Amino acid sequence: MGHTTPSPTPRIRTAALLVAVEGLAIAAFGVLDLLDLHRDRVVLAVVTSLFFFAYASLLLASARGLWRLQVWVRAPIAFTQLIQLGIAWNLRDASPALSGVLAVTAAVVLWGTLSPGTSTLLREVDEAAHDSPS
């Protein structure tokens, strides 16, 4: 019989979009670091920018994977959101507004990625992919 691929739920779409926005923001930081290039810190600026671009690529690939209901994305997304919660905690006194945005965003992404409904859907999609003949 015909097999239909489920579509992402609104909570998964929200989490994927937020992760994509985070990835674009990190890439923007990489560009800004390159634009602020000074003669005495060329190597540092280039290496930092390369790190930002690699990290942004991981986030964007994870957002795409989550949108496509791929199971592998949960680990890198959860890891990056836990780091983001730590950054939010460290910024709580210096920049309460930014801290709040980072914390709320990370919480929403973790909820959208790790909630029981998402887990069930991803498990079903993964099992269907393994059961289907190649």
Rank of each mutant, 00 (worst) to 15 (best):
R41V: 01
L24S: 14
G2Q: 07
A75E: 09
A106Y: 00
P6W: 13
V125E: 05
L35E: 01
R13L: 13
S62G: 11
T118K: 06
T5S: 05
L59K: 15
I83C: 10
V19F: 08
V125K: 10
V47I: 08
R74H: 07
V31A: 02
E22W: 03
G100W: 14
A25F: 04
L17H: 08
Q81C: 15
S119G: 10
G86K: 06
A54M: 03
R123L: 11
L58H: 06
T80H: 11
A61P: 00
A128V: 08
V73M: 12
S119C: 04
T105P: 06
M1P: 02
A103I: 12
D93V: 14
W67G: 15
L24H: 02
L110A: 10
H130Y: 07
R64L: 07
D36L: 05
G2S: 09
L114T: 11
V46D: 02
E127N: 08
W111D: 13
I26F: 00
T113Y: 09
R92V: 09
S132P: 01
G30Y: 00
P8F: 14
A78Q: 13
E22F: 03
G30A: 01
S49V: 09
T80E: 07
A15Y: 05
G100S: 15
V31S: 00
L59H: 13
A20D: 14
A45R: 04
L60C: 05
T118G: 08
V109I: 15
D33L: 02
L122V: 15
T9F: 05
Q70L: 04
S134H: 06
T120D: 09
W89N: 13
L60V: 11
T14E: 15
D93Y: 10
L24P: 00
S7E: 10
A45Q: 07
R13S: 11
R13Q: 14
T118A: 09
I87C: 02
A75T: 11
V104W: 01
F29I: 00
L102H: 12
R13D: 07
R123A: 14
P8W: 13
T118N: 12
V19T: 09
I83S: 02
G30H: 00
P6I: 11
V47S: 04
N90V: 12
R123E: 13
A45T: 08
A75M: 07
T118M: 11
A56E: 03
P10N: 02
W72I: 03
A20T: 15
F51G: 01
L58F: 06
P133V: 12
A97S: 12
E127P: 00
F53V: 05
A15T: 11
M1C: 06
L102F: 12
A20R: 15
V73T: 14
L98V: 09
L121V: 04
L85Y: 03
A129S: 15
H3F: 06
L98C: 08
R64V: 05
V31T: 04
L24N: 04
S95W: 04
V47F: 03
F51W: 07
V47D: 08
W67S: 15
L34D: 00
V19K: 10
